[in-house]
Amino acid sequence: MLNIGGAILGIIVLAAFFPEMTAALQTLMTDANIADYTMFETVLGWTPVLLWGGALGVVGFLIVKEVKASRGSAGHSGRRLR
C-alpha cells in the first residue's frame, strides 16, 4: 500500500510544481541569448511531456507491482516451501 500512496503523492507534487516549471521553461525559451540554440529550445519544449510521461509510467509500475505483491502474499500466506 505504501507504493501506491507514494505514487499518488508523487503525481500530486508534480502537479503542484508544474505551473512554476512551465513558467521557468517559458522564460528560458524567450531569453534572447538562449533562443539562438535551436536544439536547446526543442529540449525545453519536450521537457513537460517527458516529465508527465515518466511520472505516469512510474505510477503505473508502482501500482502494478503493489497489486502483484498483494495478490501473491494473500494466496501463499499459509504455505511453506520445502
Score class of each variant (00 low, 15 high):
Gly5Ile: 11
Asn3Ile: 01
Ala74Asn: 02
Leu9Trp: 14
Ala32Val: 13
Asn33Lys: 11
Thr38Gly: 11
Ile4Gly: 04
Val59Arg: 01
Leu56Val: 06
Trp46Glu: 13
Pro19Glu: 07
Met21Asn: 03
Ile8Val: 05
Ala32Pro: 02
Ile11Asp: 08
Leu25Phe: 09
His76Gln: 06
Leu62Asn: 15
Ala15Trp: 10
Val59Ile: 00
Ala74Cys: 06
Gly75Lys: 12
Leu9Arg: 03
Pro19Met: 00
Asn3Tyr: 04
Leu81Asp: 11
Asp31Lys: 14
Ala16Gly: 06
Gly60Arg: 02
Glu66Ile: 04
Phe17Arg: 14
Ala55Ser: 00
Ser70Pro: 05
Ile12Ala: 15
Trp46Met: 02
Leu44Tyr: 10
Gln26Arg: 10
Gly75Met: 14
Leu51Phe: 15
Ala69Gln: 10
Leu28Met: 11
Leu81Pro: 06
Ala24Gly: 10
Ala16Thr: 13
Trp46Pro: 00
Gly75Phe: 06
Leu9Ala: 08
Phe17Ser: 08
Gly10Gln: 08
Asn33Ser: 15
Met29Arg: 15
Arg80Gln: 12
Gly75Trp: 02
Ala69Asp: 01
Leu56Arg: 01
Ile4Asp: 06
Ala55Cys: 13
Ser73Tyr: 13
Phe18Thr: 02
Ser77Trp: 15
His76Arg: 15
Glu66Thr: 06
Gly72Asp: 08
Leu81Val: 14
Phe40Cys: 14
Trp52Asn: 10
Val13Cys: 04
Met1His: 08
Arg71Glu: 10
Thr42Val: 12
Leu56Cys: 12
Asn3Gln: 07
Ile34Leu: 14
Ser73Trp: 04
Gly45Trp: 01
Phe40Pro: 07
Asn3Asp: 06
Ala35Phe: 01
Leu28Trp: 03
Ile63Glu: 03
